[in-house]
Write a protein that binds this DNA or RNA. Sequence first.
RNA 1: GUGGUUGUAGCUCAGUUGGUUAGAGCGCCUGAUUGUGGUUCAGGAGGUCGUCGGUUCGAGACCGAUCUUCCACCCCA
Length: 456
Amino acid sequence: MAQKPSIPKGTRDFNPEEVVKRDYIFNTIKSQFEIFGFQPIETPSFENSSTLMGKYGEEGDRLIFKILNSGDYLSKVNNDLYQTKDSNKMTSEISEKALRYDLTVPFARYVVQHQNDISFPFKRYQIQPVWRADRPQKGRFREFYQCDADVVGSNSLWQEIEFVQLYDAVFTALGLNGVTIKINNRKILSGIAEVIGAKDKLIDFTVALDKLDKIGEEKVKEEMVERGIPQSGIDTLQPLFRLKGDFGAQVAELMTILNTSEEGKKGIEELEFINKGIEALGLKTATLQLDVTLARGLNYYTGAIFEVAAPEGVKMGSIGGGGRYDDLTGVFGLKDMSGVGISFGLDRIYLVLEDLGLFPKTISNTVKVLFINFGADEAMACMKAIMRLRSNGIKAELYPDSAKMKKQMSYANNRDIPYVVLLGASEIESNSYTLKHMRTGEQKELSMEQLISALS
RNA sequence: GUGGUUGUAGCUCAGUUGGUUAGAGCGCCUGAUUGUGGUUCAGGAGGUCGUCGGUUCGAGACCGAUCUUCCACCCCA
């Protein structure tokens, strides 16, 4: 019986128009990546579970799609374990592969595995889909593209500066002007946690702080209390909620909070270096902004943290993020390999460009001219003409059946094909081509040379 | 993972307190018009009302389960 087909939740089909638009974004980003000296790599869609598990925290592990082993996987499970019905413990017995959850961890694996072939610092970019067993929401899917650029093997803060410039270059090239690149530093966050006596609660502290612009100061404080941060510490935080003004003013304010924390002071120093660099070099259309509440992906970031916000007035979460991770490859046995990287949120960028009407009109890839099919003899003549046009780089095609003209014309209309050529008995006899412009309805009888130049 | 929300024609949606044969607009097909589309007019096709089960003389409507959509949490791109 015919059943209604469907796709799994959180996945999407892309129609030709959407793929063309997405490719436009990919290509724009790629060309900037390459201008900045990054090289492409690709890694498999799925990895060994042991590569992925435990790298994203408990929450992350839950969101990893696990792949069932092949064959009679249950027969190999230890009976006692089976009786416990403990899904978490059994997962490792029946699933040894998992879909990749992001591109950063596979990249770390790649670096470790190919360390002898790589010249460091290694600058790579990667644009591939990733999968998360999340509940879908607006701009959040279970399968989506990630687009990362990373450098490993250099501690230099010039890398951070370059990434800020890269963000600026990409969004400028996409015509998305006025994005805000927010920057923070993990060392500052740990410094603050240290100062308020919550060093062991760094993650609780930052998760709460991250919500400041969303739920407000009071709610953040409430949450900090709930998460077990001492009230006295929260009180010393007071100046933090009042941070205002330009980069320099905020840094000065931070300095007063952090003057007892070596780590915090180091973080400020790093921020200042990056900011001074960017100030001296300038940005095209983006703005760099210090945001101490920024606390994403804390699981592996150790230095700078980036996040990009869409231009003001656009309702959309972050459209990019990244940061420095000093020890990403450590878990795979390669020590002292510092890396920095940034990521672009493709799907969200797509939605923002669509919203603002920023896709260029010229990216359409439709065929330029359709030849009307009048029958077998005429079709042969059409194919000869089409070969000429194609070898001149003109996208041309023949309507495959000698259907009613009305039908062929509507087809051209529906596909937005701008021109139609009528090549019937009378044209063949006079060795000419009737070219009709679909929008104006205007038509002319032309020679092959005239046809080529009209369509070029 | 928690709480809510949605599902009726290819698409966007009506459908009254449960009552005969479930509607509209757009799209599609045919014709007016056998070498001229996008306009107009006339006609036509297309639905196991998400799925399974229950209540009822009777269910698109009520109840349960399940899937799906969207939203808020959690988390995150």
